[in-house]
């Protein structure tokens, strides 16, 4: 009796081990696939692009001569776009999230309706936003094919994602914090601004930056609202514009091999800008976590 049960449990143990081993191998495999793909991509881009990276590449405007072509208008366009995006999406997105999480009575039909719509908007393809931008901003409002129109469209594109991320971060703040603050005679606004929001900022920053980073790489909606590839001057908010993804797209579709290398160099620049953005998010997170 005792010996059979001991044997039985030993068999179960071996089985557990096999399952454990299989699971670990699966994890290792997925990690490997991810790393290999990313690695291959990076190696390819760097092999082609690093040689092209130079001060003149960063400061020259595009040109039909590969030797003279640079990405300055595209880099500036993307940087302006990033700044506009942060300025537009963070207040709007966080504000909406605060309303939905802290103020809205979830029993009201219009609040539930808002919620469902925002969740659905997060799944709309970016080209659809581009069409909306063309019809509504560029033509309807008569904004024209300008950088602001591009930034507004990207704002609409990432707003749902930012709202969802900010709501998650707000929801992660325990209710006992709110109750404690209310019980001390704080108003709703004081509870939100002094306790809930500071506690949620690290989560909001991470979510918002990830969403914005995706938007910065978007090409389709910008093509729709008329970003141009050949801009010889510095872009302005209310003028013709281009951006790095557009420039990359243009260069890659050219027949000359040199332009492909320019595209690779532009990809490296775009990656560097995204890294700067992520570093900023990490900095915000650490700053607020240290305060606790």
């Amino acid at each position: 009796m005792t010996s059979t049960s001991a044997l039985g449990s030993r068999r179960a143990l071996t089985q557990d081990r096999v399952i454990n081993w299989l699971f670990l191998s699966f994890l290792a495999l997925s990690l490997l696939v991810g790393f290999l793909l990313l690695g291959a991509l990076l190696v390819d881009v760097f092999r082609k692009g690093v040689g092209e990276l130079s001060w003149s590449f960063l400061t020259n405007p595009p040109s039909s001569l590969p030797s003279r072509a640079g990405a300055r208008p595209a880099i500036l366009g993307t940087i302006y776009m990033m700044i506009l995006l942060v300025v537009l999406t963070v207040p709007l997105g966080v504000g909406t999230a605060i309303y939905l999480e802290e103020y809205a009575n979830k029993n009201r039909w219009y609040n539930r309706w808002l919620e469902i719509n925002i969740q659905n908007l997060a799944g709309v393809p970016s080209i659809v936003y581009g069409i909306l931008g063309l019809a509504f901003l560029v033509r309807g409002l008569g904004l024209g094919r300008v950088l602001l129109a591009g930034a507004l469209i990207l704002t609409l594109l990432v707003l749902p994602t930012v709202i969802v991320a900010a709501r998650e971060a707000l929801r992660a703040v325990p209710d006992s914090i709110r109750q404690g603050a209310f019980a001390l005679g704080a108003s709703q606004w004081q509870v939100v601004s002094r306790q809930v929001l500071p506690a949620a900022i690290p989560g909001i920053a991470t979510g918002a930056i990830l969403a914005l980073a995706r938007a910065i790489g978007e090409t389709a909606p910008l093509l729709m609202v008329g970003a141009l590839a050949f801009i010889a001057f510095n872009p302005t908010i209310l003028g013709d514009f281009t951006a790095l993804p557009i420039q990359i797209f243009q260069w890659i579709s050219r027949p000359q091999e040199e332009f492909r290398h320019k595209a690779a160099a532009a990809i490296i620049v775009l990656l560097a800008l995204l890294l700067v953005m992520n570093a900023f998010a990490v900095w915000i997170r650490n700053r607020y976590e240290r305060r606790w």
Partner: peptide, 23 residues
């Protein structure tokens, strides 16, 4: 009010006590 589960704010000891007067 004092609650069942201690619920200090995730801030310094000083800021916890100063929250009420500041508000």
């Amino acid at each position: 009010m004092v609650f069942q589960k201690p619920n200090p704010f995730p801030k310094s000891i000083y800021d916890n006590v100063a929250f009420g007067p500041r508000v």
